[in-house]
Design a protein around this nucleic acid. Structure first.
Length: 215
DNA sequence: CACCAGGGTGGTT
DNA sequence: AACCACCATGGT
């Protein structure tokens, strides 16, 4: 198993700085995290801009209007009916908890369970919100990272999420590193080289222990 | 045309 | 605990 510091450096060299999360506010990141689920950033970003133009990137305003009235704005993100409802619920949560400032003041230990209780917010989305909206040193474990780790280990099944979390937390403990690392993992997971049987130019490929498969 | 994209939920075995 | 169907648009 290579060190995660090394993996981070290699991914950075291949894909370049990712500069996540593109947003104008912490609440917009929460909105984007919900909208981007199981879809492309393009579709989610379009929806975010629609909401922006309507000045709906605001917990109070978003909590007021019914979910059905929200659907036209988030249509481009797919799953627009449930996402509209979940978005309104999330906005209501923020309002009920006293706003984004009040949430920012809370500890990660109390914030994470609260986020996980939200409809449509699972482990990955909760951790992405904690890292990108609230600047907490959290490891985001997604399908790309599991696949990457499995190939690096050369094992048929990926390591447990808890193991991944602890390994990475030790190697990349600070918020900027964790921020960039998750973005790089996604960028690499999406890149063409992982989808083709043979990759001619991917310089990350030699990190694979078995050498039989691209990362 | 089929396939997939920065997941999560609820039901079934 | 491990599957499964479902959610739905937009790009390739």
């Amino acid at each position: 198993m290579i060190r995660f510091e090394t993996l981070h450096e290699r991914l950075l060299a291949v894909h370049g700085p990712q500069s996540w999360w593109p947003a104008e506010s912490a609440f917009e990141i929460m909105v984007g995290a919900l909208l981007v689920q199981r879809t492309t950033w393009h579709g989610a970003s379009t929806a975010v801009q629609m909401l922006r133009r309507a000045e709906l990137i605001d917990p109070v305003r978003l909590a007021q209007i019914p979910g059905s009235a929200l659907e036209p704005y988030v249509r481009s993100a797919g799953f627009y009916r449930i996402k509209a409802v979940r978005l309104r619920k999330m906005a209501r949560f923020v309002v009920d908890e006293g706003g984004m400032e009040a949430l920012q003041a809370r500890s990660t230990a109390s914030l994470r369970p609260a986020l996980l209780q939200l409809d449509g917010v699972g482990p990955e989305t909760a951790d992405a919100i904690l890292l990108y909206a609230f600047d907490r040193p959290v490891v985001v474990v997604d399908a790309y990272l599991r696949r990457l780790s499995r190939r690096l280990l050369g094992s048929p099944s990926p390591p447990a999420d808890s193991d991944l979390r602890s390994w990475i937390a030790v190697a990349l403990p600070d918020v900027p590193s964790l921020n960039e690392f998750h973005a790089l993992v996604v960028a690499h997971g999406k890149s063409d080289c992982v989808k083709q049987p043979r990759c001619a130019r991917c310089r990350v490929r030699d990190l694979c222990q078995t050498g039989s498969d691209a990362l």
